[in-house]
C-alpha cells in the first residue's frame, strides 16, 4: 500500500470486542481513504462504529483485522510507546467534551502537547499565548475552563489540537455541545486553521448542520461504510476542488513551531 496521496488508508479493517459468546463485531471491513488537504466526515447513527474507527485511526485502539496506514505508518507494527510518540508528533485531538484540564489556565491547556513533547514550560506557554491570540482569546489566556463559555473552551481545544502542528487532526463531535451559530463558527474556524495541503482533518459527527463543511462524507451503518459522497462540484473551488461557499477563511496565522523540539 502506498499512502503518498492519502493521510489514512483502511482496507477491510475490522474490530471486535470480547470473546466467545460475548464477541461483538463492531467494524465489519472498513475501506476508506482520507486525503490530505481535505475535511473527511464520518457520519452515522449512534453505535454504527464511527467513534471506534476514529479511535483506531488515532492509534487509541488496535484493530482486529485488515490493513491500516496512518501517515505512512502501520500502527499494528508498532509498540505502545511508539504509538504514543507517533500520536504526540502527528495527531491533534478535538474531543466532544473538550477534556480540558480544569486546574490549568487556557494557555496552559493549549500548551499541553508541547509540554508532553518536552518543550520547556516557558516556551510552550509563550507559543500557546501566541496561538490563543490569533484565535481571539488573547484576553482570556489566564482564565480557567470553568470561567469560559463553551465556545471559548472549544477554541482552547482547537489551540491544543493545533499547537504542535500535527499532520492529522481528529475531531469527535466538535459541535455537539454548541448551538447552531456557534457550531458554524467553530467549523469555519476549523476549516480555516486546520486545512493545509499537508494536513488532513477527520470529523466524526451526526450533526447534519455541518455536513456542508466536509469535502467527503462517509456514511456508516452497522460497522460498515455504506456510502461515500464527495460534495458537489459546484460547491467547490475549481482550482483546488475544495468546498468554498460556506467558508469564510479567517485571517489567522499559526505561529511557527520549532519542529526540533517536537522531535
Amino acid at each position: 500500500m502506498k499512502t503518498e496521496n492519502y493521510a489514512v488508508r483502511c482496507q477491510e479493517v475490522t474490530k471486535e470486542f470480547g470473546q466467545g459468546d460475548s464477541r461483538t463485531l463492531v467494524l465489519r471491513g472498513i475501506n476508506l481513504e482520507v486525503g490530505f488537504g481535505e475535511i473527511t466526515m464520518l457520519v452515522g447513527q449512534s453505535g454504527c462504529g464511527k467513534t471506534t474507527l476514529l479511535s483506531i485511526i488515532a492509534g487509541l485502539l488496535e484493530h482486529s483485522g485488515g490493513e491500516l496506514e496512518v501517515l505512512g505508518q502501520r500502527p499494528d507494527c508498532e509498540n505502545e510507546n511508539d504509538r504514543i510518540v507517533f500520536r504526540r508528533k502527528n495527531l491533534g485531538f478535538v474531543f466532544q467534551q473538550f477534556n480540558l484540564l480544569p486546574a490549568l489556565t487556557a494557555a496552559e491547556n493549549a500548551a499541553v502537547p508541547l509540554l508532553a513533547a518536552g518543550v520547556s514550560g516557558k516556551q510552550a506557554i509563550k507559543r500557546a499565548i501566541e496561538l490563543l491570540e490569533t484565535l481571539g482569546m488573547g484576553q482570556r489566556i489566564y482564565s480557567f475552563p470553568n470561567q469560559l463559555s463553551v465556545g471559548q473552551q472549544q477554541r482552547i481545544a482547537f489551540a491544543r489540537a493545533l499547537i504542535h502542528e500535527p499532520r492529522l487532526i481528529v475531531c469527535d463531535e466538535p459541535t455537539s455541545v454548541l448551538d447552531a451559530e456557534s457550531g458554524q463558527a467553530v467549523m469555519q474556524l476549523l476549516a480555516s486553521l486546520a486545512l493545509r495541503p499537508d494536513r488532513a482533518v477527520i470529523i466524526v459527527t451526526h450533526d447534519d448542520r455541518i455536513f456542508r463543511f466536509g469535502d467527503i462524507i462517509h456514511s456508516m451503518s452497522d460497522g460498515r461504510v455504506t456510502g461515500s459522497n464527495r460534495v458537489k462540484d459546484d460547491q467547490h473551488d475549481p482550482s483546488t476542488g475544495r468546498f468554498i461557499l460556506p467558508r469564510q477563511p479567517l485571517p489567522i496565522k499559526i505561529p511557527t513551531t520549532t519542529k526540533k523540539a517536537l522531535l
Binding site: 504514543i84 504526540r88 484540564l101 480544569p102 508532553a116
Partner: peptide, 16 residues
Amino acid sequence: LKQFGALKAIGVTNRR
C-alpha cells in the same frame, strides 16, 4: 481518569 486519558491520547507516555 478522563484527564489522564486525554493526556495519554495527546501523547504523554505511561512513564511520564
